[in-house]
Simulated assay, not measured.
Amino acid sequence: MTRTRASVRPRDTLAPPSEAELVADARAGHEPAVRELIRRLNPRLFRVARGILASDSEAEDVVQETYVTAFTRLGDFKGRARFSTWITRIAMNCARVRLRKARPQEEYDTVQDRDAADVLAFPGQHQELPEAALGRAQLRGLLEAAIAELPSDLRLPFLLHEVDGLKIREIARDVGLKPITVRTRLFRARRRLRDRLNSRLEDGFTSAFPFDGARCARLADRVSARIRYAADGGWIDTSG
């Protein structure tokens, strides 16, 4: 995208443009409108793609393809639904197509790697992705904090049972309680943890699979590098 056109209509500079106004500007070849639509839609489209695909990198690739498809086919958007709804459907279709293409290869790999469990894994051979390690650490921290808030009479049997793997009768013997008392305390501990975790997770759902900041800007740059506005034909994909 090498050329920037002026917005098709003057606006109150204090009011952010609506989605419809941005789409109208994008139809006219206004690059900042394209970038603003990408910025606004990135979180939704990434979560949609990530909900279908197994990795962040696959989802990010699908989001990029979604934008290229949508902007090069803006003529197909008739405005009967919101642009965000229309492009979300494109993202879902792109993700499902990618998933279908990946499945035959996955089945082939499963056959080829049937004896993979017998192969000695050397240290560092299967490194955990940084984002996966971070997510696991955050989840562990959330669990540990919730367990720490349990009263000691519930926390001790819970840790002995869930972490150390002791049976109820073993816990009863070691701490001097009746098995029915241990069972009751485990039930109460699990219920409290469930309620505590549900409360904290509900607060965090809105930030699940974030896609913003520098990551968002890089994707906008990649999309911009792939599409170019032609006055007689709208946005075209220059990669093919």
Rank of each mutant, 00 (worst) to 15 (best):
A81P: 00
F83Y: 14
S84D: 12
T85P: 00
T85E: 03
W86I: 11
W86Y: 14
W86C: 08
I87M: 06
I87W: 03
T88V: 09
R89A: 09
I90C: 02
I90T: 10
I90F: 06
I90W: 03
A91Q: 04
A91I: 09
A91E: 06
N93F: 13
N93W: 13
C94N: 14
C94T: 13
R96M: 15
R96C: 03
R98Y: 10
R98H: 10
R98A: 15
L99N: 04
R100Q: 10
K101W: 05
K101E: 15
A102W: 03
A102E: 11
R103I: 14
P104R: 08
D109Q: 11
D109R: 14
D109M: 13
D109C: 05
T110M: 11
V111F: 12
V111G: 01
Q112A: 12
Q112V: 15
R114Y: 11
A116R: 08
A116D: 11
A117C: 03
D118E: 15
V119H: 07
V119A: 09
V119T: 11
A121Q: 05
F122C: 02
P123F: 14
P123D: 15
G124Q: 04
G124I: 06
G124R: 04
Q127G: 02
Q127C: 03
Q127R: 11
E128F: 02
E128K: 04
L129C: 00
L129A: 11
P130K: 10
E131V: 14
E131Q: 03
A133K: 05
A133I: 07
R136N: 07
A137T: 08
Q138Y: 04
L139G: 01
L139E: 10
L139C: 01
L139I: 10
R140Y: 04
G141A: 11
G141Y: 06
L142C: 01
A145D: 07
I147R: 01
I147H: 00
A148P: 00
E149C: 03
E149I: 06
L150W: 06
L150H: 04
P151F: 14
P151A: 14
S152V: 13
D153R: 07
L156I: 15
L156W: 04
L156E: 12
P157R: 05
F158I: 08
L160W: 05
H161A: 15
H161K: 05
E162L: 05
D164A: 15
R169D: 15
R169E: 15
R169F: 07
E170L: 07
I171P: 01
A172W: 08
D174P: 00
L177K: 04
L177D: 06
K178N: 08
P179K: 07
P179N: 05
I180V: 12
T181F: 01
T181W: 01
V182E: 02
R183K: 09
T184Y: 04
R185N: 03
R185M: 05
R185V: 06
L186W: 01
F187K: 02
F187E: 03
R188Q: 09
A189K: 01
A189F: 03
